[in-house]
């Protein structure tokens, strides 16, 4: 058992209380993703934080709230197959590499035979079989292209931050090694444009092992990642905590 350094333990506690700015929250997520001790400490801290909620004096919710929630759930019908998030603007293009991409192994290996990678793809969160197939083909095309190169996501401080992009021509696969986004939140990619133009909303993704295919990346100076409320946003809630410079 490695003891968690004091500063990291403090970071994790603050994160469980929701008291970190986005860049610090991303740093906490990296520790949690990278270490079982940190992960356990975070889960314990979240339990204690949730207990704080019970200190609030009771308030009676409106009598019809229960019925409204059940009616809204009924309207959604199929909870299993319905994707949790609606991509804000870009079509939802993501899939998950089945548990084989840990933050440490990462995806540094462009040399991996595309056929093997293809076989690893678990199509778990897709709108349709055909779009899943399209994405698999896109990923294989990107990985096997002669011009494919890796661009790491970096934090503002310049350190590695939660994943990398494999870029080929005008397309890229963003491979996330972030821990799953906190409840009610999602990660979202943004196309960063030169000259201070507002960032272009790109697909959302939930965490470690998620891959999103990004089209038309040639028009961006970089791709950034933020934490957004579930469903994604049209404008970023904060400056990206991680940026891949193209």
């Amino acid at each position: 058992m490695n003891r968690i350094p004091d500063d990291v333990a403090a970071l994790i506690s603050a994160h469980a209380l929701g008291a970190l700015e986005p860049d610090q929250a991303a740093l906490a997520e990296q520790h949690i993703a990278a270490s079982d001790e940190c992960r356990r400490a975070y889960e314990d801290a979240l339990e204690t934080a949730a207990a704080l909620a019970l200190a609030v004096a009771d308030s009676e919710p409106p009598a019809d709230l229960r019925d409204r929630i059940v009616a809204a759930a009924r309207a959604e019908r199929q909870p299993v197959s319905k994707p949790a998030e609606k991509a804000a603007a870009a079509p939802r293009r993501k899939f998950r590499l089945a548990g084989l991409l840990t933050p440490s192994t990462g995806f540094a290996v462009i040399g991996v035979a595309a056929a093997i990678v293809f076989a690893l793809i678990a199509v778990s969160q897709h709108d349709s079989a055909s779009s899943a197939r399209d994405d698999q083909q896109a990923l294989v095309a990107i990985l096997s292209a002669p011009d494919a190169h890796v661009v790491p996501l970096k934090s503002a401080a310049g350190g590695p931050a939660g994943g990398r992009m494999i870029v080929s021509g005008n397309r890229a696969a963003l491979v996330s090694s972030l821990r799953n986004a906190p409840p009610g939140h999602t990660y979202q990619a943004w196309g960063l444009r030169p000259g201070g133009a507002s960032p272009v909303p790109l697909p959302t993704f939930s965490g470690n092992g998620d891959v999103v295919i990004l089209d038309d990346v040639g028009q961006y100076g970089g791709v950034g990642v933020t934490v957004e409320p579930s469903g994604g946003s049209q404008t970023p809630s904060a400056a990206p905590f991680a940026v891949a410079t193209l």
Binding site: V56, A57, S59, R66, I69, V70, A73, R77, P79
Partner: peptide
Amino acid sequence: GDEGALAELYDRFGRAAYA
């Protein structure tokens, strides 16, 4: 897809969540 289960979860935690 059991809506009754969701309603039961609401009965248990809806009040604390709302407060």
